[in-house]
Design a protein around this nucleic acid. Structure first.
Lengths: 246, 246
DNA sequence: AAGGCATTGTCAATGCTTATGACCAAGTCT
DNA sequence: AGACTTGGTCATAAGCATTGACAATGCCTT
């Protein structure tokens, strides 16, 4: 009834059975560990122990910690972009995929921080890239200009989501400190020295992360809409000039 | 310049003289170490040795490694925004400060990676925030909306520059791999499976980082210009509708 | 000028990390 | 059946962040 009977039958003498550990299991447990303990609690010994195995067991399946991180990165993209398809409106496609990436990254901040600047070059990533480029082409960009615009949009999504995730992956203490800055430090600012901050001192603490994201996203899409050779004609964007923020 | 002769004269017996280490010196040497060895080569023991001191000497001036990181972050902002003043055109002010931050972060990628998501709440940061908010107010935004727009622009600059820096801070090997993806993997893509990538396969490898940045920056500014209650009237932006890319 | 004392550099040690090589049991292939 | 491979464990190395004890140094008071 103790530890070993769960794994199997009699071989209680030494740890795990033979086929107990698989790459998929290890990646899944890594995500769980990262979500619960944060990046600082994610070490290979702890991961091994969390799997009920030896602290060094993971090295049998991944050559190094970095190797494991790449597998985790791929898993995140898979999770974010599962079922993504191009919409009829290219602006919706771009908006949707950016929101998807952000949602997944915010759900796994520590894991996202480890992987946001890595390129995995695996199926999930390729599929996403193809959809994004498709949207850029649908907007009427071509050739070298289309390539630059795609990179700009893709890197924007990655760096923004990565940045937000990096903040959420900080210690609770550091996070509290930083958030408090918007109230404590800026609220008490000197009017003569920082007049502009002073004007907004009451508004700054109430800004919500979701609103910040939707604002920058809409700015990017609006800029794109304006420069696109073939603007979107769908109901929502067709005539719209200025629905302002939110 | 490291060891004992710089410090002075005879006391060779035991390490350094009394006033040898100052926070400024330590931060400067940290930057040098980060630039030359990368983030993985930046440890407090190494830093102490690089200063010609005991591996634990730094703890006399900074409570923890995190404390030191915050000081480094502040130094970077200082360096980036030194001499920044609001221009007559708010769009120029926003463009200029974003470019400044990026330039400094790219010059110190490893240091930037450590500090891009931290808030230091120190003079240099406050001054920058005040200038940025000033530009947003000049654009005609007010109250809560101005606060959101400022946060969107500020976080955009930080996360973008941080993202580019994070990539440059990777091992040379990992960096080569990732860059090669744009040629090797995408050039050989299957036409039927990823038709959009296939169309741009020849253009993707030639995209330059500077162009990507200027593209996303101009998209953001263009979107802002369109939504701003008080668009910029300066010569460059006044009538301009669509100067296209670059 | 002599004494007190906080500062700051050094030393020794703890408990954590990534990672390697030796060992050994359990399946697998011939 | 016997040899080989695979995968889990053990022992161990080297490096890191951090702490506490110790000692020299230079300032500040008297």
């Amino acid at each position: 009834m103790t530890a070993e009977h769960a794994a199997g039958t009699k071989q209680g003498r030494r740890g795990l059975r033979r086929g107990s550990l698989t790459p998929e299991l290890i990646v899944a447990q890594s995500l769980r560990l990262l979500d619960e303990e944060g990046a600082s609690g994610f070490s290979l010994p702890r991961l091994g122990r969390a799997l009920g195995a030896d602290p060094t067991a993971v090295y049998r399946h991944f050559a190094s910690k970095d190797d494991l991180v790449l597998a985790i990165a791929d898993q995140l993209i898979e999770e974010a972009m599962d079922g993504l398809v191009a919409s009829g409106c290219w602006a919706d496609t771009l908006t949707d995929s950016t929101r998807r990436l952000r949602r997944t990254y915010l759900a796994h901040p520590a894991a996202a921080t480890l992987s946001s600047c890595r390129t995995t070059q695996r199926p999930a990533e390729m599929r996403t890239v193809d959809v994004l480029i498709g949207a850029v082409l649908a907007a009427g960009f071509t050739g070298a200009q289309a390539a630059v615009v795609y990179r700009a949009l893709g890197d924007f999504a990655l760096s923004w989501a990565g940045g937000e995730a990096a903040f959420l992956a900080l210690d609770d203490q550091q996070q509290k400190n930083d958030r408090a800055a918007w109230t404590r430090a800026y609220l008490a600012v000197d009017r003569a020295e920082h007049p502009s901050i002073w004007l907004l001192r009451a508004d700054l603490p109430d800004v919500r992360d979701d609103d910040i994201f939707e604002t920058i996203l809409s700015l990017v899409i609006a800029g794109l809409m304006q420069r696109a050779p073939r603007p979107c004609r769908c109901p929502r964007h067709g005539a719209a000039a200025n629905p302002a923020a939110s």
